[in-house]
Design a protein around this nucleic acid. Structure first.
Lengths: 219, 219
DNA sequence: GAAATAGTGTCTGTAAGACATTATAGG
DNA sequence: CCTATAATGTCTTACAGACACTATTTC
């Protein structure tokens, strides 16, 4: 029969924690692989979900309690062998949040694992997570994407450190700030500074519409 | 019920013809929208298709007779309103071919329409085609993608003209060739030149493995 | 005022862009 | 030998990268 295809969404929820890129894993409630840690995922509910993006948002909300961070379609994984229940399609998304959104203290329903050293996950979740990390790293090379790994307001130093962690290389402060100035997707938060042990730093936030500013490409 | 979801693939088959980017449209055999021009598409066959990519290749082969040109996943479109039959998921792909692959003379089963002036298409096929064209144009800015719009062997001038058509801007010959030299994804075809009215030009082809060379990005 | 971080300025080498020159074919 | 295209070379300027310097806070 044509339409006995399993249709799900999976979400790779990424954050920076302890200086590394990590992803949220949940212990599965249901078979298959019940009890094992896996990416948050679930069936699309045709009666409830407007589209797959909405389904991903709902799954994330129901399973982790988080509401609509940055959420973007990653890739669609499919085939006859990736799910023991049968031929399946999973529309995968990736989300970026600041660690503080995950709540303080010990995790309740979920755990964080470094994307570069994940345990063996069910289905093709290792592939999905690896591809999400790759996408984030690629896109961070030419866009403002890493901003979404920070809280709503942040200092330029924090932003630079975020880029450095994601890209895995160090950047020159002066060059970095020149770029930001040219692109004009940040605005200073009026009268807001971060206090530290020394000179306070101006806080910045993303400009309202500029959710994904792009840098210059060549050719 | 959860799983009464329609699962299809659609293919945006792009080519350069008469100096413009065009896409292949087919008259639909079946309802809904039977008889109307639309993107090549069809159900996934779980018993037959290894995954959605294979399904896209099969659909393309069965409906246009073309075998495996450049074929890449574009985006997955989904929702309750895009298909009158019900909640649906379409995994969309885009393919690039040289016009000569489409066969000479008047088209038999299909027609070519400019992506920038498409008629009203069924489903959300206008959105899908627009997104495919956008992806090609974006990626052409920093990759070797436009090579796949040419025949297997081509001159540097033809390659430059292809880039110019896709990008919609003119490029400097000297700069263009410097870039190609740095990236090293082309090789000269030995003893092969294109004869014209004047000095013959060396023919080039993609190096075996280098299907998608990337240019430099910043940050 | 010492130390540390924030923020800006200056210099230099490299490479992009614009243009010129040489090379090779046909008429 | 003229013209058209192929292919390569030269020059100038803009900018990336490296580094220095100034500013502002705490202790």
């Amino acid at each position: 029969m044509e339409s006995q295809i399993i249709v799900t969404v999976d979400v790779v929820l990424l954050t920076l924690s302890e200086g590394a890129l990590k992803t949220v894993l949940l212990r599965r409630d249901n078979e298959p692989y019940a009890g094992q840690p896996a990416l948050p995922g679930g069936y699309i509910h045709p009666g409830e979900d407007r589209d797959a993006l909405a389904a991903a948002g709902r799954v994330l909300r129901q399973k982790t309690g988080l509401v609509s961070p940055y959420l973007e379609q990653l890739f669609t994984f499919s085939g006859g062998v990736r799910d023991p229940r049968g031929w399946s399609v999973s529309v995968a998304y990736y989300a970026l949040v600041h660690e503080s959104l995950l709540g303080p203290g010990p995790r309740h329903h979920f755990e964080l694992a470094p994307v570069d050293a994940l345990p063996d996950l069910p289905f093709d979740h290792n592939r999905i997570a690896a591809q999400a990390a790759q996408r984030l790293r690629d896109k961070s090379g030419y866009s403002a994407l890493p901003c979404h790994l920070l809280p709503p307001a942040f200092t330029l130093r924090e932003l630079q450190q975020t880029y450095e962690l994601v890209l895995g290389s160090s950047l020159d402060k002066s060059v970095f700030r020149r770029r930001l100035g040219e692109l004009d997707f940040l605005e200073a938060v009026p009268d807001a500074v971060r206090q530290g042990k020394h000179r306070p730093a101006q806080l910045y936030r993303l400009k309202p519409q500029a959710r994904l500013a792009l840098f210059n490409k060549t050719m």
